[in-house]
Amino acid sequence: MVRFESVWLRYPRKGGATAGPDVLRDLSFELTPGTFCWLLGEAGAGKSTVLRVMGLSLPPSTGTVTVLGASTSGMTRRTMPRYRRQIGVVSQDFGLLPDLSVFDNVALPLRLEGRPEAQVRADVTEILGWIGLAGKLVAAPAELSDSEQRRAMVARAVVNRPGLLLIDEPAGWLDPEQLNQTIGLVRELCRLGTTAVVATRDRALAESYPAPALRLSHGALAATP
């Protein structure tokens, strides 16, 4: 479950003081478990910032954010990793680690959870096979095309079946067939209980896969699901 209540955000400057214009303005909405939701808006509307707040990368300046049933204001550096492990993120901010193979990159979330190595091997090879990277298990990220890297990032985000899945602008790096496949995978995960938020400025894409949508404009909500 994700809930925003009167969330405002200004990016913090050096020294901790907040400055600059409001990036998010009075956002309030709630997503129930298993929801597939589009986050729509033009470039600069605040989509990526909303994803960062949901992904526990950025705290709101004011307001309350509840992610996976817990308020972010009550999370500490000690408890936050437990929540982060339940959030899958596909975004430019979350690249692959260049020194690890594709397999090891995708295995990271499972290993951080302390899953048995046999299960790690099984789950990673399964998801990489499904996403079309079965032949790239031992490849370094640098050996992959942009599209393959993004697909590996999708695999890493979903391999541990997260409670919350956040995807930023998938249309820019997947061809229509891969996009269809990825959206299908995300919807299947939602059916199993994952809440998914996919940010895009491509309205046509959102219309191709009907689902509730949050429309952002200048950091404020234009419509709720």
């Binding site: 000690r78 959030i87 979350f94 951080l112």
Partner: peptide, 8 residues
């Protein structure tokens, strides 16, 4: 990055 992925 590993911290964001959930490493303590």
């Amino acid at each position: 990055l590993v911290s964001q992925l959930g490493a303590t």
